[in-house]
Write a protein that binds this DNA or RNA. Structure first.
Lengths: 227, 227
DNA sequence: GCAAAAGTGTTGAGTGTACACCCATGC
DNA sequence: GCATGGGTGTACACTCAACACTTTTGC
C-alpha cells in the first residue's frame, strides 16, 4: 500500500477533495420530484445543483450525507443509501473534486416546503423536467432514477415515499409514477398483499365522493428484499 | 455549495485522502479466489490486503483502479466496475483514508501466477478461507462477494471468469462455485441457451476419457442484463 | 340516481423445477 | 466392456398477465 508514512493523523495529503451530494426524491402533485438548490454565484451561477457539502476529516460519508440533509433541507430519519462515486476530472471546473452521491427518499406529507422556507433558492423540481444543471448532477440524477426504478421492483423501499398509513391505490400510484407505466389494479394488489409486508389498519380513508379505501401500513419501515 | 473558492485548480484542500482498492476474483482449482498482497511493514505487517493505491490528482477513479491492476498484478482489459466507497474513520490507523473499492473478474487461463512473479508477496487466496486481513478489507471482500452472487443471476458477467471458449459444464461449475450450491444440469443448459448469449463453436473439448463436450463462446464479451 | 374510485376471481400462457436414461470416448 | 462425464425431454407446480363487474360513498 502506497500510503505515505505519517505520525500526524490529520496530515495533509495532496489529492482530490471529497464531497457528498444528496439526491432526495419525493412524490408531490403526482410527480416524482427531486430537491435542488439554485446556485447564486460563481461559474455555475443560475444553474441548479443537488444539496451537497465537503466531507470533513471527522465524519464518515454516511454522516456527511446526513448532515447535508439536516442542514440544507431540515430532513432527518429518512431512508438513505450510498449511490455511486463520481470522479470525472472536469466535473467541477473550480478544482479536482470527487463526489460520493447519496440517494434518499422522503414522503411529502411529513416534509413540506415550509420546513425549508429559510432557503429561498431550494425547490422540489420534477425529475422529468430538469432545469440547467451544474456539475455532472444531471448524470447523478439519472443514475439515481435507474436505481430507484429497479429497487422498487425487488425491495420495499417505496415505504420511504409513503406516509405512515396509505391506501393501496396511493401505493400503486407511486409505482406508476416511478416506472412511468400503468399497472393492473387487481394484479398489483394480489402481488403486494402476498408479500406479507403490510398490515391492514382498522381505519379507512373517507371524505372522497366514493367508497372509502382501507388504510394499510408497513409492518417494518426498514429495507427488506422481496426477491 | 460549500466548495471553497480557488483560482488554483490543484489547490490543497484539507480533507480525507482517497484510495482505490481492487477486488479481483478468479476461479482456480475449483475455488473462488481473490488476489491479495501480504504487507511487509508498518502497523499492518503480516496481514493481507487488496491491491490498492492512492488516487492522483490527474486520474479518475476508474483510471486509478486500472493503474493498480496493471502495476500491481500485470492485468489489463478485464471486466471491472465500481463497488462501493468505504469511509469508517478508523479503517486505516495511519490516518483518515476513504477507499473506493473496485470489483474485477479475470479468468485464470489468460492470467496465471507467472505473470506476477515479481511480487513475492502477492497470491490468489481462497475467498472462503481468508487470512488475517488489514484495514476493513474483509468487509470489502464480503460486500464484493454478495455483488458477484447476485449479479451472475441477472447478467452475463460470468464471461469475465471464463476463457474465450468453454463447455457448458465448465460454465455450470463456475455458477456452482460462486453460489455454493448444486444446479440441475438440464435446467441450467436450457436456461442458459435460451438466453441466446452464447454461440456454439465447431470445436469440441477432447482428451478426457468420456464423450467430448461442445465448446461455446459468448457472442459479446461485454455486460448484458438478462432480466 | 349517478359519478367515481374501491374492491374482488378466473383463465391461459409461460416459466421454473424435479427427475432418469442413453451417448461417445479413453483405457 | 466399463467407467466417466456429455447430452437430452417431459410432467407438474407456480407465477404472471389479461380482463369486467359489483360495492360504497358524496353530492
Amino acid at each position: 500500500m502506497k500510503i505515505q508514512n505519517s505520525k500526524n493523523k490529520n496530515s495533509i495529503i495532496i489529492g482530490p477533495a471529497v464531497a457528498v451530494d444528496t439526491l432526495i426524491f419525493t412524490i408531490r402533485d403526482g410527480k416524482l420530484m427531486v430537491l435542488l438548490i439554485e446556485i447564486g454565484s460563481g461559474p455555475y451561477k443560475d444553474k441548479w445543483a443537488l444539496p451537497g457539502g465537503i466531507v470533513q476529516l471527522n465524519e464518515t460519508l454516511d454522516e456527511a450525507a446526513k448532515n447535508v440533509l439536516k442542514k440544507k433541507a431540515g430532513i432527518k430519519d429518512i431512508y438513505m443509501e450510498q449511490l455511486y462515486t463520481f470522479s470525472d476530472l472536469k466535473r467541477d471546473v473550480r478544482g479536482r473534486m470527487i463526489s460520493v452521491a447519496y440517494f434518499a427518499l422522503v414522503n411529502s406529507d411529513e416534509f413540506n416546503l415550509k420546513t425549508m422556507d429559510y432557503y429561498s433558492d431550494i425547490e422540489w423540481i420534477n425529475v422529468r423536467k430538469l432545469p440547467k444543471m451544474a456539475f455532472d448532477h444531471k448524470e447523478i440524477i439519472n443514475y439515481g432514477l435507474d436505481r430507484l426504478k429497479s429497487k422498487i421492483e425487488y425491495s420495499n423501499i417505496v415505504y420511504g415515499l409513503l406516509p405512515e398509513t396509505f391506501t393501496l391505490t396511493e401505493m400503486q400510484n407511486v409505482y406508476e409514477i416511478i416506472l412511468g407505466e400503468k399497472i393492473d389494479k387487481r394484479n398489483f394488489r394480489k402481488k403486494i398483499l402476498a408479500l406479507g409486508l403490510l398490515t391492514e389498519t382498522k381505519k379507512v380513508k373517507t371524505g372522497a365522493k366514493h367508497r372509502p379505501a382501507k388504510l394499510y401500513k408497513f409492518k417494518k419501515r426498514e429495507l427488506v428484499f422481496t426477491k
